[in-house]
Simulated scan of single mutants.
Amino acid sequence: MLANADHVMPDELKFEADKAFFSAALDRAALIIHGRNSEEEQPNSPRRKRIVLTRTIASLAAHPDNPQATLWNPAGASFEAACEFAGVTSGRVAIIGGPSVFDLFMERYDKFWLSQADRVWLPGGEPCFGGVPERSPQQILASRGLVAGERLTLDAAKNVTLTPWLRAD
C-alpha cells in the first residue's frame, strides 16, 4: 500500500533511508511524471521539470501555478507529445504517484523500484497497482515482463527493503 484508507501517506510509512534514495533518484531525472495528488515536497521540488496527469483538460496545457510543470490528459495526447510540450526529449523519466499513474506506464518501465516496509500494515489502504491485493505487487510486475533484481536493505531495524524490477530482454 502507498497510503492509508484516507489516501494519505502516514508517518509510519516514511523512512529516512527510503526518502534519501527517492530524493537522489529524482535529482537524477530529467522529468518527473505524477498524478495531481503526488508531490514529493522536497527542497528541489520547485526546480524539477514535471508532467502532472489530469482529466480536467482535453490534452496538454501549461500548469497555471508552476512554470516547471505541464498538465497532461493521456486520453487527449500521447506521452511523447507531453514530453515535447514540456520541453524534455531525452533523459531519465521518474514516475511517481499512485496506481493509475503506475499502471499507465507498466509496459514502458525499464526499471521499477519497489520499496517495502514489512512491519507497516495499512488495512484498506491505497495499493501501488491496480489488482493489489488480489495479486501481490511482485506478481503484477512479473506478469508485465519485469524481473526482480537484488533486494537492498534500506533499514534493517525497521525491515525496509528496496528491489529493482528490470525489464526482461
Rank of each mutant, 00 (worst) to 15 (best):
W113A: 00
V132M: 13
F85Y: 04
L154E: 01
I95S: 01
P123I: 01
E84D: 14
S136G: 03
G131E: 01
P99E: 09
S143C: 04
E80V: 15
Q139M: 13
S90H: 10
M106P: 09
F85G: 00
T153N: 12
L152I: 10
V147E: 15
S143M: 08
G76E: 02
E150S: 13
G97A: 06
D155W: 00
V120C: 06
P99M: 09
G145W: 02
R108G: 06
I95D: 01
S115D: 12
E107W: 08
G87D: 07
C128D: 03
G124A: 07
A77S: 12
P123D: 00
I96P: 05
T153R: 08
W121G: 07
G87I: 04
Y109M: 03
L146M: 02
Q116K: 08
F102W: 04
E150T: 12
A117P: 01
G124H: 06
G124Q: 06
A86R: 02
A82I: 03
D110T: 12
S115M: 08
Q139H: 10
K111M: 15
W113E: 07
M106N: 13
A77V: 11
F102Y: 15
F129I: 10
F105L: 03
G87A: 05
E107G: 10
R119A: 08
G130S: 15
G87E: 04
L146Y: 01
T89C: 09
A142K: 10
E134H: 14
T89H: 05
G124E: 04
Y109F: 05
G91Y: 09
A81S: 07
A148I: 08
T89Y: 05
R135P: 10
A86F: 00
L114A: 10
F105R: 02
V88N: 04
A148Q: 10
S90Y: 07
T89W: 03
E126W: 11
Y109I: 00
F85M: 02
G91W: 12
W113F: 10
I96V: 11
W113V: 06
L122V: 03
I95R: 04
G149C: 15
D110F: 08
S100Y: 07
F105Q: 01
E84Y: 09
G76W: 01
V93N: 00
A86Y: 02
D155L: 03
W121T: 14
R119E: 13
Y109D: 00
C128A: 13
G87C: 02
E134I: 12
M106K: 07
G125R: 00
C83Y: 05
R108I: 12
P137E: 13
A77M: 13
L146H: 00
Q138M: 06
R151S: 14
A142N: 12
I96L: 14
F79T: 09
E126T: 13
F112M: 09
R144C: 15
V120L: 04
G97F: 07
G124T: 07
G98W: 03
L154G: 00
L122W: 03
